[in-house]
Amino acid sequence: MIDYSKLFHPQSIVVIGASNSREKLGGIVMNNLSKSYSGKIYPVNPNGGIIFDILSFKTLNILPVIPELAIIALNANLSVKALKEAGQMQIPFAIIFAGGFSEIGEKELENQLVDICKETGIKLIGPNCMGVWNSHRLNASFMNILPPFHGKITFISQSGSLIAYAIYLKLRLGKFVSLGNSTDVNFEDFFDYLSSDSDTKVLALYIESLKNGRNFLEKLKNFPKPVIAIKAGSSDIG
């Protein structure tokens, strides 16, 4: 069974594409982590140097440990390469923010991600997503505006805009996961972990599509907590 506590409570994180610039994705992520996360951060940048007061590494394969989460802040093509390297290192989880995959017709590029996940066992959030947030000090996303009031609602969404709207409504979220294209990890993959998670009392889902509807429904039947699910595209106007 996959241990999803390593996604929500990682002991260490590597940021591939880390930057000092808050105008770049790698800098936004580093800034968010520096404000929210107390574990070990390993920035990776081919130029090396000091990034957010942390000594960076020029390549992933020279890290002194195997992190539990790889945050990949690169473009689509470079993200594929980085995911393969992370998977070969046996890093258990990765997040890819970049778009440029099946959502714009680049199915072959996304299929490469699928193959890497199958071959190495790495679990991928994304691509084309906003990341993961946990009120217990983890902002592994590029969101700068976060829930002002924390609660015990876990929100998993294929739409980043809906997460932003939930924050605008000041819903008392405890966790959010932006799945994006759901290339590897899907809604039902979280059910076992969240069923025993004391910080989740209500599960909210925003669903655009399901890869295995039968499997989703079977697992949903056994989920022991209240679930609020919205399926997009079920009416004439969407």
Rank of each mutant, 00 (worst) to 15 (best):
L217E: 09
L169V: 14
A229D: 11
E103G: 05
F190C: 05
F149S: 15
G213V: 04
K35A: 14
R137M: 07
S235N: 13
N128G: 09
S135T: 05
G238Q: 05
K170W: 11
M1L: 08
K221Q: 12
G121Y: 07
F190N: 04
V202N: 03
F52Q: 05
L7H: 00
F223P: 02
N134I: 04
N111Q: 12
K24S: 13
F142M: 07
E208L: 09
N61V: 11
S34C: 12
K221D: 12
I54T: 10
R22N: 06
T200R: 02
S19N: 07
V44F: 04
I207T: 06
S141M: 07
K221P: 04
D53V: 09
V15K: 01
I50N: 15
V14F: 04
A94R: 00
N111P: 00
D197G: 06
S157C: 13
V65Y: 09
S195H: 09
I122S: 01
I28W: 03
S159K: 13
V44C: 12
G26V: 03
A98L: 06
I95E: 03
F8C: 06
D197V: 01
K231Y: 13
E188I: 01
G174P: 01
G99W: 01
Q88R: 10
L138R: 04
K107G: 06
F176T: 05
N128E: 10
L25S: 00
N20W: 04
S159L: 12
K219V: 08
F155P: 05
G17R: 02
A94M: 08
L63C: 13
V177C: 02
N20D: 11
V227W: 00
T120L: 07
F93D: 01
V227H: 03
S235G: 14
V15G: 02
I237Q: 14
S19D: 03
V227L: 04
S36F: 12
